[in-house]
């Protein structure tokens, strides 16, 4: 474009947001909250085969004061909940949370008195990673998606506006059981579950037309 062609070589133009995002994403320090089986896969991700050091993340900061990312790896019991919240509060902004594994995301297979059914009851989660336990490659995929999110995070007044917009979108979204339109899942119906893989780009209306008996 205009000005970049006229600059001498060796100069890059960027925006403050992109620079800050880049700096943040290449040196995320995880506060590994390794709890259970997922912690073993987390440690394996730091191992030589699936190397976390290539993302600058091998320096796991054991003190939350210096950590950026809390990877909740494993099932969170009722006794551990307050500890989780305290560690999250001790982290300094900007901070992100990956809930690794199904136990952290939703309580997993342990739907009982002892396990918190999803750490999003306690801390706000940025990336949910399913799996029991998720492979190291899956964790790396989640981390890469998080890096994407970090890179594109806005600053200052733009950030305030971004937060407002995300919140409004979340508040408007209906729960799955009433048809959120997410992943093309409409209102429940007997043919829906046998309809094969949902089309991700199908809107609620399209799917509604193809079902014979739509319930409200």
């Amino acid at each position: 474009m205009g000005i970049e062609e006229k600059l001498p070589s060796g100069i890059l133009l960027t925006s403050v947001e992109k620079l800050a995002g880049y700096a943040r994403k290449v040196s995320v320090w995880p506060a590994t909250f390794g709890l259970a089986c997922c912690a073993m896969e987390l440690i394996s991700t730091g191992g030589p085969r699936h190397d976390l050091a290539r993302f600058g993340m091998e320096r796991a900061s054991n003190t939350p004061r210096q950590a950026d990312l809390m990877i909740v790896a494993g099932r969170v019991s009722q006794k551990m909940g307050p500890v989780l919240r305290q560690i999250y509060d001790q982290m300094a902004d900007p901070k992100w949370v990956i809930s690794m594994g199904v136990c952290a995301s939703s309580g997993g297979m342990f739907n009982n008195y002892a396990i918190v059914q999803g750490v999003d009851h306690i801390v706000p989660v940025d990336i949910y990673l399913p799996g029991c336990p998720p492979r190291p490659e899956m964790l790396l995929d989640a981390i890469v998606k998080l890096h994407d999110k970090i890179q594109n995070m806005k600053l200052g007044a733009n950030r305030v506006a971004e937060i407002e917009e995300l919140e409004q979108a979340r508040l408007r979204r209906l729960p799955l059981a009433q048809g959120s339109g997410y992943l093309g899942i409409g209102a429940p119906g007997p043919t829906l579950l046998g309809a094969g893989p949902a089309r991700p780009d199908a809107t609620h209306a399209e799917l509604g037309q193809s079902e014979p008996g739509e319930q409200s």
Binding site: L35, A36, S77, K79, V83, F110, N112, Y113, A114, I115
Partner: peptide, 9 residues
Amino acid sequence: GYLHTGIEK
């Protein structure tokens, strides 16, 4: 007890 999962129950 910080990882008690109630597996036995």
